[in-house]
Each structure stands twice: as structure tokens, then as C-alpha cells.
Design a binder for these strands. Structure first.
Lengths: 189, 189
DNA sequence: CGTCGAAACGGACCGCAGTCCGTTTGTATT
DNA sequence: AATACAAACGGACTGCGGTCCGTTTCGACG
């Protein structure tokens, strides 16, 4: 099999990198929501049309940015040190996984919001988290609809829900405790 | 204690109703995302500024619309026929509750998206659902952090998550089965 | 090295959310 | 009923996301 049908022209690739870099820089200077597409285009030295050609929409651009961080995290999960990475017992990994995911979703919450539904959890490297949890649950011999259980476990870690709770004054330690408790209850069958 | 500091002027109240009605009508004619604020204002026979004065933003308007349906549902839960309403055993009510909530979130998904974070679950009649589940869990003598458990149970019923699963081809019956299964596992302690 | 087609580019242009401020209207008071 | 003031109104205006299309550039091939 060949690669994707179109290997992408050289200037296009250069522009994409320039745009991502420009966006990242602008975002860390002012906040995510204050970065305009025009500003990104200008800083990258390209026309506005180019930005939209590459990323489709503002959400698309943010999603691309997210994707990068997400990949690093995926690497930490699949090849990093235990207990998050391989080498620890499935149960310990599951506990560590939730904690890590919780913090990740929190750290990127602004970006996640800006990425909307085009975000990491839709198409691309999509439900990596889901697959991983599912895998761990299987290893733990948890019975039942493991795929659904994975979704259900992950759901309360999502950015919007976590943020809402923090806004209501729930301390983050309690959210972590909740996660661990939830895992314990479901793993015991 | 008196009412809210400002009882709201008569014309203001009239305009609010007109706007909500206009919005509802336009939404059911074309889809939610095709309804513009100008159109709503025009149909209600008021200026655009008035719309924003009343509802703050497009999201605010959508949230107000949602709020109405949400209240009806709340009434069904608190005073309607069993098993959703009072009169059934707590366990049966909890099962019925999730199913009903799932369908509700699905039915209003477009509106929920349009209402963004200003939506029902933030400030106004806020986490009614959460309180109710918490109440039922307490009645069932489920031990632990019941407030967190309520959030965790509700999370996988949220619009975005449900829609994502449907998009992946999961049939809705499986989501319902997942809910019932989850409840069973958590209630057994 | 010259030619050619496809892909990328850029920026003028459009529609809509949201703001601003001068004007109008409702209501409390005497 | 007249007055006065706060609150509501309306629509011109701004800024940004997104589109469109004529022009430029890449790179494959002879």
C-alpha cells in the first residue's frame, strides 16, 4: 500500500508548521480565546485563506494543536515509566491512568473548549483513551460490556464536567479520590 | 424577604415572552443553527439590542429555551407517574431516571450544543438531576461520596458523549443497557 | 531547460454575534 | 395630571470566522 493519496506539497507542509508554531506562540502570549485567525495568519506570514485551507476552521486549528499534546501523552501511556506506562499491574495502571487523564483534561481545558467537537475524541487518534481503558478492564477480567464501561469511566473525567465541579468548589483531590473509588467499585465484581 | 430586587418592567416581560416564542418558532421551522439573532429580533418585532439585553448572548437565549423544557421534565420527575415520579422503589426510579435523562439529552442535543456552557447544568435550576440522583443513592444506602457518584453516573448520559457513541454506530439500546448495568453494579455494595 | 496541469496562495468580501449610545417609555411620586 | 428618573429600546457599527476566485507556485514530464 502507498501512503495517503496526496503526499502534500513542500510549501504546504512548511506553511502548516509555521501556522502551528505561530498559533502556539500567540496562544501562550495572550489567552486562547483572544487569538484570532487573522493574527495567526499574519504572524505565520501567510494569507488568511491558507489557514482555512489547512485546518478548515478555527476549531480545526485548535484540534491540530491539541493533537500534538495528546500524542505526547499517548506515548507516555504506551511507553513511559510505570505505573502509567507498561510494567505495572493492570489495576495500578488504571488508577494512574485516570489521575493522569484528569490532570491532562484540566490543563488543556481552554484548548479543548476551543477545539469543540472536532477535538481529540472525535476522529483522528480518537478514542485512544477508550481503547486503553477497555484493554485494562479486559486484563482485569471485568465482566460485561467492557466498551461501554470504558466510556462510562472516562466520562466524568471530561473537561467540562471537571470544570463545572471545580467551579462549584469541589477540590481536585476529591475528584481524584472519586476516580479511585469508582475504579475500585467496578473492578470488584 | 421581598422578591428579587427588580420585579421587571411590564414591557420587558412582554418582550421576553415574544422573543422566546419567536425563537421557538424559528427553530422548529429551520434548524437551530440556522436561526440568527437578527431573525429572532425581527420576528418578535423588537430591536436586536433588546435580544442581547434580555439574554446576554446567543447561548443565553438558547439556554433560556432549554430551561423551559428542563422544567417540564423536572416536574415529571418530582410529581409525575411512577416509575419516574414518586411512588416507585428508589431503585426502580433510578433506573427509569437514567433512561429518561438519556432520551431527553438526545432530543435536545442541538439546543444543548447551541446553549454551550451557559446551559441548564451550570447556574439556574442547575444540577437538579445531580441532586435527585444523590437523593436516590442515599435512599438506597449506597456508601461513599454520594455526591461524586451522582456526577459520575450522570456524566456518560451527557449529550456530547452519547452523540459520539451513536456516531460510532452504537445502538441506543446498548446505551440504555449500559446505564442499567452501571446502576446495578454501583448499587450492589 | 521549457511546458503544463494541479495544487496552494492571498486578500477582498460576506454574514452574524455582540456593543454602544442617543432616544423612548414605564412607573413612582407629589 | 404633571414631573422626573431609571430602565428599556433600537439600530448603526465593529470585529471575527469563514468563503470565493483570480493569481502564483510547485514539481512532473518531455
Amino acid at each position: 500500500m502507498a501512503d495517503q493519496p496526496a503526499p502534500e506539497r513542500a510549501d504546504a507542509q512548511r506553511n502548516r508548521r509555521a501556522l502551528l508554531e505561530a498559533a502556539a506562540e500567540l496562544i501562550d502570549r495572550c489567552s486562547v480565546e483572544n487569538v484570532t485567525m487573522d493574527a495567526v495568519a499574519q504572524r505565520a506570514g501567510v494569507g488568511k485563506g491558507t489557514v482555512f485551507r489547512r485546518f478548515g476552521s478555527r476549531e480545526g486549528l485548535m484540534a491540530a494543536l491539541l493533537d500534538h499534546s495528546e500524542r505526547e501523552w499517548q506515548h507516555a501511556v504506551m511507553a513511559g515509566p510505570p505505573p502509567l506506562g507498561p510494567g505495572a499491574a493492570p489495576c495500578a495502571r488504571l488508577h494512574a491512568f485516570g489521575e493522569s487523564r484528569l490532570r491532562l483534561n484540566l490543563r488543556h481545558s481552554a484548548l479543548i473548549r476551543a477545539a469543540g467537537h472536532t477535538g481529540s475524541r472525535s476522529v483522528p487518534a480518537a478514542s485512544f483513551a477508550q481503547l486503553h481503558v477497555r484493554h485494562l478492564l479486559t486484563a482485569l477480567e471485568v465482566p460485561g460490556d467492557v466498551a461501554y464501561l470504558a466510556v462510562a469511566l472516562l466520562a466524568p473525567l471530561e473537561g467540562p464536567i471537571v470544570q463545572q465541579q471545580l467551579r462549584e468548589g469541589v477540590p481536585i483531590e476529591r475528584l481524584e479520590a472519586g476516580w479511585h473509588d469508582l475504579v475500585d467499585r467496578l473492578v470488584r465484581a
